[in-house]
Design a protein around this nucleic acid. Structure first.
Lengths: 190, 190
DNA sequence: GTAATTTCTTGATTTTTGTCAAGAGTAATG
DNA sequence: CATTACTCTTGACAAAAATCAAGAAATTAC
């Protein structure tokens, strides 16, 4: 659970050591095999998962295609936040792209955090604000950049992903077809 | 401040009447004239504004263009959340599109809420989660829909906006040029 | 290690969207 | 009310991106 502790420290700054231990103790380390689902759409998202190692893909399926919303790498969380918080059926599915180690906390334990850790809701708020800002920036890129510029930006910030996951998923996440992705990629390589 | 009270009630469900009064009392009703700025990029966003009546536009300026991120109608909030929460310079500007009545809370008063209202941070969290979900859905539409489909969707849900604001702002918000917007619009009208 | 499956690339073509430029319509100002 | 500034529309064209189809390349499974 070392990674998780470090994450919380670095994200929330000074957290009381006791509180930190309480938080981390409610997470459970598990392993999920490549291809397995952490969450299927329609089910309630009953846990929040922190990636210790490996890769998770969050996506939405429609009749004719899958839209990849997010790829969670080491140090990121994965969940359908809406489903997790409001306990509604999830629209998204989450699948492991490789064998993945995660620290998960169940919704029940998550609720306990509010009681056990005095400043929990404040930390939680900061966490979600950060998620919000990430999405805000992402929308801005969709409004202001071409497919090629979005590729460039993503590549610069996630080079290591390009030889770890099927590129079609990255293409989908960036809002373009695999063919367009491939053509942009060739240009950038040469 | 009636609208604001109703908003809080409907969003957060049962809130203690005392708490509700405390929250609302920290907001101040003001008027902002058409064209005036509520926030300029580079400045810190020092307040959170709830639109009682009128329209606010949140946008980002680049060298050659303006990207409209959001238009706040009656019953919505406006702020650069990142700047407001973390007290950093804002990337966005906010401008009134018509004479607008807003209930604003200063950052200082906002901080007081955490002390005055026991469950504040929980309510705050729920508020931000809802903002997060709105963005998540918006990204999904960018990943899965064409300009025409995004137009359709927005039109169905915001018909009243179309004869209140310059259409170029809606076009920008939907990630298309005014020309494309105009052409799609003609198709839909016929 | 080979067959089967999936993923990626490439070309040809179509569709969508953007750009540039000009003009019409509308609103704002003195 | 006339002039000035926006805003919207339209056309012609260019560029970007999607689609369809076929074949390589890489992975997975037996």
């Amino acid at each position: 659970m070392l990674e998780l502790k470090q994450y919380i420290k670095s994200y929330f700054g000074v957290v009381d050591t006791n509180d930190l231990d309480k938080i981390v103790s409610l997470f459970k380390l598990t392993t999920i095999k490549k291809g397995d689902f952490l969450l299927k759409s329609g089910k309630q998202c009953g846990k929040l998962s922190f990636v210790q190692s490996g890769l998770l893909r969050t996506f939405i399926s429609t009749e004719d295609k899958e839209i990849t919303q997010w790829i969670s790498t080491k140090g990121y969380f994965a969940a359908d936040l809406s489903s997790f918080i409001f306990e509604t059926p999830s629209h998204s599915s989450i699948q492991a792209l490789v064998d993945t180690e995660i620290s998960t906390i169940s919704k029940n334990n998550y609720k306990l955090l509010g009681e056990l850790v005095p400043k929990w809701h404040e930390l939680e708020k900061l966490f979600i604000v950060r998620c919000f800002i990430i999405l805000e920036e992402r929308i801005y890129r969709h409004l202001s950049m071409t497919a090629e510029e979005r590729y460039e930006y993503f590549f610069e910030n996630n080079k290591e992903l390009f030889n770890q996951v099927p590129l079609q998923y990255i293409a989908s996440m960036l809002g373009m077809t695999p063919e367009t992705f491939s053509r942009i990629r060739r240009k950038q390589l040469s």
